[in-house]
Simulated assay, not measured.
Amino acid sequence: MPQMAPLWWEILFLMFIFSYLTMNILIYFNNKKENINQTNKNMNNMKNNKIMNWKW
C-alpha cells in the first residue's frame, strides 16, 4: 500500500491553491475595472476637446 501524505498537508495545499486563484481573480477584475474607468475618462476628455479653435 503506497504511503499517503497526512490530511493536513492536503488541506494546506488545497487552501493555498484556492487562495492563490482567488487572489488572481480579484486582481484581474480590479485591474479591468480601473482600465474601464481610465477609458471613460479618456473618452470624456476627447469629447471635451472636439471644439477646435482654429487660428488662421
Rank of each mutant, 00 (worst) to 15 (best):
N24T: 10
K41N: 12
F18P: 00
T39Y: 12
L21R: 05
K55A: 02
W54T: 07
K55H: 06
Y28A: 13
M43D: 10
K47L: 14
M15E: 04
N30W: 15
Q3F: 04
F18M: 00
L26P: 09
M15H: 04
N35F: 08
N37M: 08
N48P: 02
E10W: 10
S19D: 01
P6C: 06
F16G: 00
N40K: 14
M15L: 03
K47I: 14
T39N: 06
P2R: 14
Y28Q: 06
N49C: 09
F29Y: 10
W9Q: 07
T22Q: 03
A5D: 04
M52G: 01
K50D: 06
L7H: 01
W56K: 11
I36E: 15
L26Q: 15
N24S: 04
L14D: 11
M23C: 08
M52A: 09
I27W: 03
T39I: 08
I25P: 00
A5R: 10
W54P: 11
M43C: 09
N48W: 09
L12C: 06
L7F: 03
N37C: 05
P2A: 14
I36Y: 13
M1D: 08
W54C: 06
Y28G: 07
I17F: 01
W56Y: 10
N45D: 12
K50I: 15
I11C: 02
Q38H: 10
T22H: 05
M43E: 08
N35I: 03
W8H: 13
L7S: 05
Q3C: 02
I11E: 10
M23N: 12
K32W: 14
L7Y: 00
N30P: 10
L12P: 01
M23V: 03
T39W: 11
K55E: 03
N49H: 05
K41C: 05
W54F: 14
M23S: 07
F29K: 10
I27Q: 14
K47E: 15
W54Y: 12
M1Y: 09
E34A: 15
I51D: 12
M52V: 08
I11P: 01
N49P: 01
N44I: 14
I36C: 08
L26D: 13
I25C: 03
N37I: 02
Y28T: 09
S19M: 01
K41R: 14
Q38T: 07
M1E: 07
I36P: 07
P2W: 07
Q38F: 01
L21M: 07
M1A: 11
I51H: 12
I25L: 11
N44Y: 11
Y28P: 03
F16S: 01
N48G: 12
E34D: 08
Y20G: 09
W56F: 10
N45T: 09
W56P: 06
N24F: 09
N49R: 09
N42E: 13
P6Y: 05
N48F: 13
N44M: 14
K55W: 04
I11G: 02
K33C: 09
